[in-house]
Write a protein that binds this DNA or RNA. Structure first.
Length: 705
RNA sequence: GGCGGCGUAGCUCAGAUGGUUAGAGCGACGGACUCAUAACCCGUAGGUCGACAGUUCGAUUCUGUCCGCCGCCA
């Protein structure tokens, strides 16, 4: 990427999170990165010296395990996935200036330097952690032995290990004062309030090293320890600028960042830990951390059983990058959650891009071609249209500046409609029927005004639909939009006499079948296995039924674990066990791999699946996900504790017939004994459980074979 | 459980320090036009503004309770 070297211009450093290579790139990652790219492009057109950073986060126990499962070294595994991200961004033409990988030497050096600095400044000490630990989430959990992980519902392990700690508690007051003095630091408001509440409730020191695995950056001077993944990851924003090197001109030039874009699920790390690290290191804080919402995947009504992990490539194949960019930024109010569906995408594409922008360009340029031999006519300007265009410039600009992409695009498309309305109202094709001078003059005015409006529209649309804008810019005869000076965009920049470029469709209408085509592509893709697997019955939960030993890598399938359920790959049950997992955190690639170990019929026969009827159901106090059920098997009644409280209200279950694993060894959950598990499909990004059932009435106690 | 947010037309959402007929876009329906990508333009749609109660001359907009959804609580 050619960096803008003009030191006269104000620096603008913009970052996305670095993506954890445990998941393959999907639309969630694309959303963040596209928003950042649009902002980067916008700021560049406004004359800022933009530096746009993205990259991948590659350390941690999860990567170590996933690599082992994939039969690769962690280095190779991380490199492969990192390359997938990078290839996608390149294919989409994203204009990042730097792509950092946490396995790079420059990063390791920077992180170790940061560690030493914090140590020297007295913010790091060695201590001992004794308590509960969730192996799956690599998370310390509060509570007595037997506590379930609040994130995934699995039983925690009791551990005791020596750690380095960061004195986070020392920054409680300073952080609050900073938030107070800089209300714009955390956006939007809702996130800010959450962070404030969190800090106000008191900060404890943060464990920042691990000894239980090796795949990470060693603590300088104590190589048994590996630096905690979050400290490692967050530091990328400065190590990418040369932090830790003797000379760091980029750091001097670009830090602090103006905008750090993140997904809302990682706001605590970016709004509490990160500023505290920076304060401790004596570095200035970023100007704003902006959290966007989640991208949810709506199931299309045509196939309800569809899984919902969508890859950007599918959309690129069928509609192109601009379509995806436009949809994500137009349809979703930035900051709020939004949903994606192929239906809505094609709808937006046709209504706004094909019928709106594309058609306006097409009709206007066709008439200039026909009536003025392909040259921009010399004509007076329609004052009304000019005023509307100028108003749009203001509105769209302020929308982009505020990262309110949907507002900006809304205002821009209003101008498109106004220009379309202007043409229809003045009917140039009728005016053209008369050859007299007055009519020619009138015709020139109408078409010049429309073309001038299209020029403004195109310039303003460029950050969001760069490819299409570049095409139209050429068709207008204005050359390469990338080199155009859009900083002082005004109405009057279109020179009469300019010869139009080659005309051609910019956004051809999409047929209805585009929807089914994209759906088909998704289904055929190998990575689809992730979503496919979620459609299969997974055994749900009894979190305790999941192997919890930290050394189980991978968990050995036995007939008594959920893994024995046909067609559900071993780790699928692990995914199913995390109903609360946010969009950006799912998709263990190991899940995507086809099931490796097949089981024999005898293995399956060991699992006793039976029909049971729910007699009683009630919530387990202080456990958001757990329900205590009493079920009737015909030959006996028993108690089961199941993690389905978020999907089913207790009263709706009473009388319902469900499928249970009847011969599961009993486990205690929250002090309650659970005798068996309920079988449910795990649906969607969040693994919402859907209970298995029968279309016909089935006798209680019947066995499934 | 504690704290916070949300619930407005078929869909996605605006909005109101309380006040004549509650808005936009899309979809649907009707009309007009033919330069253009079966497109564009015009018009129509009558939604108890989640439920109930209160404050008020008057509430969808304020207060309370409830229901539903969501987020944060290392």
């Amino acid at each position: 990427m050619p960096a803008n070297k003009n030191q006269q211009n104000p620096a603008f450093f913009l970052t996305t999170p670095i993506y954890y290579v445990n998941a393959r790139p999907h639309l969630g990652h694309t959303y963040t990165t596209v928003a950042a790219d649009a902002l980067a492009r916008w700021k560049r057109t406004r004359g800022f010296d933009v530096r746009f950073l993205t990259g991948t986060d590659e350390h941690g126990q999860k990567i170590e395990r996933s690599a082992a499962k994939a039969g690769k070294t962690p280095e190779q595994f991380a490199a492969d996935v990192s390359q997938e991200f990078r290839a996608l961004w390149d294919r989409m033409g994203l204009t990042y200036d730097d792509y950092i990988r946490t396995t790079e030497e420059r990063h390791k050096r920077g992180v170790q330097h940061l560690f030493r600095v914090l140590q020297q400044r007295g913010f790091i000490y060695k201590g001992k952690y004794a308590g509960q630990y969730c192996v799956f989430d690599e998370l310390y959990v509060d509570g007595p032995p037997g506590t379930v992980c609040p994130d995934c519902g699995r039983l925690t392990e009791t551990v005791s290990e020596e750690n380095y700690f960061f004195k986070l508690s020392a920054f409680e007051r300073r952080l609050l004062e900073y938030f107070e003095a800089h209300p714009e630091f955390i956006q939007p408001e809702a996130r800010r309030n959450e962070v404030l509440a969190f800090v106000r409730s008191g900060l404890r020191d943060l464990s920042i090293s691990r000894t239980s695995f090796n795949w990470g950056i060693p603590v300088p001077g104590d190589e048994k320890h590996v630096i905690y993944v979050w400290m490692d990851a967050l530091a990328n924003y400065i190590t990418a600028l040369g932090y830790g090197m003797e000379q760091h001109p980029l750091l001097d030039r670009y830090w602090p960042a103006q905008v750090q874009l993140i997904g809302k699920e990682i706001s605590r790390f970016h709004c509490v830990y990160w500023p505290a690290f920076l304060m401790a290191a004596g570095l200035p804080l970023p100007q704003t951390v902006i959290a966007h919402g989640w991208l949810l995947f709506e199931q299309s009504k045509m196939s309800k059983s569809r899984g919902n992990i969508v890859r950007a490539e599918t959309v690129l194949d069928v509609l192109g990058a601009d379509a995806l960019r436009y949809f994500l930024l137009r349809e979703i109010r930035f900051g709020q959650d939004g949903s994606f569906s192929f239906d809505a995408l094609v709808q937006r594409y046709n209504a706004d891009l094909a019928n709106g922008y594309g058609n306006l360009v097409s009709r206007t340029l066709a008439m200039i071609g026909k009536y003025f031999d392909g040259r921009i006519p010399e004509g007076a300007v329609d004052a009304g249209l000019q005023a509307e265009a100028e108003q749009a410039i203001t509105k769209v600009s302020s929308g982009y500046d505020a990262l309110q992409f949907s507002d900006a695009l809304d205002a821009l498309w209003r101008l498109i409609a106004q220009t379309d309305g202007y043409l229809t109202a003045n009917a140039p094709w009728k005016v053209a029927a008369s050859e007299d001078a007055a009519s020619r003059k009138r015709l020139a005015e109408i078409l010049y005004s429309a073309a001038a409006s299209i020029r403004v529209i195109t310039a303003l649309a460029y950050p969001v639909i760069p490819d299409a804008a570049a095409k139209v810019w050429k068709q207008l005869g204005l050359g390469d939009i990338a080199t155009a000076d859009l900083k002082h965009l005004t109405w009057g920049g279109l020179q009469p006499g300019t010869r139009l470029g080659e005309p051609g469709p910019v956004f051809p209408r999409a047929e209805k079948e585009a929807i089914s085509r994209m759906q088909a592509i998704e289904e055929q893709h190998p990575a689809r296995a992730t979503a496919e697997a979620e459609k299969q019955p997974a055994v749900f939960q009894n979190p305790a039924a999941v192997p919890v030993s930290p050394k189980v890598v991978p968990p050995e399938p036995t007939a008594f674990t959920p893994t024995a359920v046909p067609a559900a790959p071993p780790t699928q049950s692990l995914t199913a066990a995390s109903p609360g997992l946010p969009a950006a955190a799912e998709a263990n690639p190991a899940v995507a791999a086809p099931a490796t170990g097949k089981i024999s019929i005898e293995d399956f026969a060991r699992v006793e699946l039976r029909v049971a009827q729910v007699l009683k159901a009630e919530r387990v106090p202080n456990a958001d996900r757990l329900l205590r059920l009493e079920v009737d098997l015909g030959y006996e009644q028993r108690q089961i504790v199941a993690g389905i409280a978020e999907a089913y209200a207790p009263e709706t279950l009473i009388g319902r017939k469900v499928v249970i694993v009847a011969n599961l060894a009993p486990r205690k959950l929250r002090g309650l004994e659970s005798n068996g598990m309920i079988v449910a499909a795990s649906v969607g990004e969040k693994g919402r459980p859907v209970l298995a059932g029968f279309l016909e009435d089935v006798e209680i106690g019947a066995r499934l074979k």
